[in-house]
Nucleic acid binder design. Structure first.
Lengths: 187, 187
DNA sequence: ACCTGAACACCGTTCAAGT
DNA sequence: ACCTGAACACCGTTCAAGT
């Protein structure tokens, strides 16, 4: 009747992330994860439903770590650079978050700093939409970089700074267009 | 000595795209592709190096189709909406293009309309960087939508229109910041 | 209660043998 | 010259049997 637990779910997720980062998705086999935590593959199924679920857990853990990183950044520029740096640091995990949606809680935690920073510029009425503009841009930029989609010349750092500057300007200056259905004067 | 060709590379790629779109990546097996084109799996290896290469060919074909679609759009707003609509129409193929870089030719063809449209606003000196701003944003927006990352409330259509309006405004109005190392007056 | 070996289904890929 | 059945390695997953 003894029942020694030889591993834990967090340990499994951590092992999965490490294997993923240094070998890519195809190296992330249940056997590789099991052997890294010192167990046989079938034992993983006591803690994880299947490989797909493990991928989702890895995506969630990645978003969580990202949210911790974002929490200590200040202002849109700093947040965007932190986001991009994280994508460079953990490209495989970052890519996963584009496919497997993280939990709403992790998502909300990671978004909060951006919503707050953007809200300071555009007011609470447009904070969410503004945050989506910033997030979509930096997310797309990092994704395209990692995919090698910027191959038509030009300097990528310059393109990042150009985009960042324009995005911030777009959120700072008022929009003249009368179609603006969302503005909510903050005075 | 007879040697009847029972399929072709374009046929294989087309079959792969269809299978991918309606069953996702895991349904895209070499056997499924083979049986759809009326052949046995080993025969595919006469035309395609391996499954990975087939995925790359599918990504390339997707970017090519996207570039055809973009060619008949006019102006940044129309181009962005066309891009997003394409991502909604072929989500799996679209996702692939984020992982497997397409050929430089296909990439250049798809980018050209955006570079031209943006160049009309900011001048040739900033056309490429401006195009990267637009592309990164719309790409990130579509990716996040597809991944279900917009779950914090608010209307997604509104967020898209908000972002589009701000991006266009950001490219139209001059940037006051003196750090602008890239502007090249067009007069 | 958790762990394991054995087993099964399925997949990618190779290759000798067909035509 | 291309196509195929057979075979191999490898993977995800299940389960009865261990402790």
């Amino acid at each position: 009747m003894p029942a020694p637990e030889r591993t834990t779910l967090p340990e499994i997720v951590r092992a999965g992330r490490e294997i993923l980062e240094d070998g890519g998705p195809s190296s992330l086999t249940m056997q590789a994860v099991a052997s890294r935590v010192g167990v046989r593959a079938p034992s993983l199924y006591k803690r994880v439903q299947d490989r797909e679920a493990l991928l989702a857990l890895i995506a969630d853990a990645t978003v969580s770590e990202m949210s911790v990183r974002m929490a200590s950044a200040e202002g849109i520029a700093d947040l965007a650079r932190t986001y991009r740096a994280f994508a460079h640091e953990q490209p495989e995990g970052f890519r996963l978050t584009m496919t497997f949606a993280a939990s709403t809680e992790a998502l909300a935690r990671a978004s909060q700093p951006i919503i707050t920073a953007v809200g300071d510029l555009v007011g609470p009425g447009e904070a969410l939409e503004g945050a989506r503009l910033v997030t979509a841009w930096v997310n797309g930029f990092a994704t395209m970089e990692l995919a090698g989609a910027f191959r038509l010349g030009g300097d990528i750092e310059d393109a990042f700074e150009f985009g960042l500057k324009r995005i911030i300007a777009a959120l700072t200056s008022p929009v003249s267009d009368s179609q603006d259905r969302h503005s909510e004067p903050d005075r």
